[in-house]
Amino acid sequence: MTLLSAIRSRLVILIPYVWLLFFFLLPFMIVLRIALSDLEYGSPPYTPQFSLSDGWSGIWDKLSTLDFENFAFLVGDSLYINSYLSSLKIALISTLFTLAIGFPLAYGMARAPDRIRPTLLMLVILPFWTSFLIRVYAWIGILKQEGLLNQFLLWLGVIDTPLEILSTNTAVYIGIVYSYLPFMVLPIYSALDKMDESLVEAARDLGCTRIGAFWKVTARLAVPGVLAGCLLVFIPAVGEFVIPDLLGGSGTLMIGKTLWIEFFNNSDWTVASAIAIILLIVLVVPIVWFQNAQAKAAEAGK
């Protein structure tokens, strides 16, 4: 009986590892292997292909043809480097805007009367019920030359010629901020919601002004939520493809789009894979930093 339960408890621990092996590590190894291969016109469009009939020495010969050529190519071409930098910049600015809008929203929700809080939470989650793609498409209708926004502003008399927003980076920012706002609001809300409100009162009682108490207590205790929200927005925003493709213009340079072009327009799987690998490495840095910060926050208690 105890042996059985011991095995069972081991199994429970094993499941996530098996999951990671099959759905993360294995796909990663396949992408890495393509990134190290050479381009070849054929199907699949890379070489070498491994086969069991090669025998040990054959496999070894083929393995030795794997190299970092594609990575060297990426580093050598400023287009790719610029794509990475531009993606990081767009993601970073979008994240800051999302935080600037998301924090007050989450704060307002957490301080709202208990009665209406579930409704507010529902409103934040509601957009998820419509396809992401359709929501981004809808923004075309809002932002285009004769779109709703321009019509509205013209009607108000704020502008007399329609603004050119669609097909610019501004549209991409709007799209990212809109699409990822719930990912910012929810973790911050959860951090603020579980905070004891008497902490703020205690700070005010001990000599803080309202604003002082907000910074020293509320904002400080919301840090884990803010970090989680920023990463949940920043990481997918860096690799975003749909939003720059639909709302951005020819001048919008983002790595997701570059990857798409390499993969589908140039049929260059090897370079596309190399781009993906470097993107992953670029993103692992903030993830590791976040996990460290979270571990520290957990150590600091609740």
Binding site: S198, E201, R204, D205, G207, A300, G301
Partner: peptide, 20 residues
Amino acid sequence: VPPHKRPVNMMFQSYALFPH
């Protein structure tokens, strides 16, 4: 007179100790 200007201190039921 706001709380921070009163010569009064309060001990809260929940203690309200700053967890960080």
